[in-house]
């Protein structure tokens, strides 16, 4: 019993210590600001305005390049003497952690060093939402239109196509990510990107086709027809190229391909719902068929433009 209490006590101490230590820390909070070129720092207690508002006391760099210091334009301390807003002359790359050092700010002139970064899960989620809505591949990047107009006549077709597409997209994107990171980059074969990626996509489609035929014939009968169409779609080759351009890591690649596939599914479904109703409408003969579908897609694109201001994290 006695021993139990002692263990409990030490546990509480162990858990509590960091909290105590944190309370003595100078920096209470730090984050990227609302504008793309801002970092907001909250101090635990009031600080000396003259020291904090002098940009010469700061050194800020991206964690991976400590040699390149970022140009700080101004620092403004709020009325409460606790919140400082750092404004930089160029937009920051919020994807990367930034290391900030403030000289002479602590008691007895000690420097404070800390890292500013976004919460990673939130960042992953924002990639997904961005590919799904803000940068929807069909309505804001104008990719995959041939298949989009070809298969959006019926809701069932749209759903089948969208699902098959998402599956192939995720598998092929992850495969091309591996190839890019572990073969193309180390051996300096970047110029082969297009050949390798289109090869991998065709390979994935073939593989999914063969596996589905053996494993689940019912599913194959439902979705097999769409598989051939997937190769002729430019979204599927655009995603690996975008991944390679942005140097995304594994989870980021996964989220982007999932978002791209989901976005295509969403676009197809929305479009097919409208086109099913349009068949009953009285459309001028010159607009029948493809022309009116383009006009409707244009209106969707206009609506999706509204997502462009959306920032989540």
């Amino acid at each position: 019993m006695h021993r139990m209490r002692r263990i409990l006590l030490s546990l509480v101490l162990l858990l509590g210590l960091p909290v105590l230590a944190q309370a003595q820390e100078l920096i209470a909070g730090k984050s990227f600001g609302k504008a793309t070129n801002e970092i907001v720092v909250t101090f635990a207690g009031p600080v000396v305005r003259a020291v904090v508002e002098d940009p010469a006391n700061y050194r800020v760099y991206e964690e991976q390049d400590p040699d390149i210091l970022l140009a700080l334009e101004s620092v403004v301390l709020a009325e409460d003497q606790k919140t400082a807003t750092l404004t930089f002359s160029e937009p920051l790359n919020a994807r990367l952690p930034h290391v900030v050092t403030i000289d002479r700010v602590g008691e007895s002139g000690a420097a404070a060093t800390f890292t500013v970064m976004k919460p990673y899960l939130g960042y992953l989620f924002s990639i997904l939402i961005s590919a799904l809505l803000i940068n929807n591949f069909v309505f804001t990047k104008y990719l995959g239109l041939c298949v989009f107009f070809g298969t959006s006549k019926r809701k069932d077709t749209a759903k089948g196509m969208g699902l098959t597409f998402t599956l192939v997209m995720v598998v092929s994107a992850i495969m091309s990510w591996f190839f890019y990171q572990f073969v193309l980059k180390p051996y300096d074969l970047n110029f082969l990107q297009i050949v390798i990626f289109i090869g991998l996509v065709s390979l994935t489609v073939q593989a999914v086709d063969t596996v589905l035929r053996k494993v689940n014939p019912a599913l194959f009968n439902a979705f097999g027809v769409y598989l051939v169409l997937v190769i002729a779609n430019c979204v599927i080759i655009a995603v690996p190229l975008i991944l390679a351009d942005n140097e995304y890591n594994f989870w980021e690649s996964f989220m982007l391909s999932l978002g791209a596939g989901g976005g295509f599914l969403l676009a197809l479904y929305l479009m097919s719902s409208v086109r099913e109703r349009m068949e009953l409408a009285n459309i001028p003969p010159t607009f029948k068929g493809v022309p009116i579908a383009f006009i409707v897609a244009g209106q969707f694109a206009l609506a999706f433009l509204g997502f462009s201001g959306l920032t989540l994290f």
């Binding site: 003969p285 022309p291 579908a293 383009f294 006009i295 244009g298 694109a301």
Partner: peptide, 21 residues
Amino acid sequence: LPFAGFFCVGLMMAFFNYVEI
């Protein structure tokens, strides 16, 4: 504006259809 491409293609196709009719 980027999205006007949809409208423009649609309208031009309709125009060609009209000429044909």
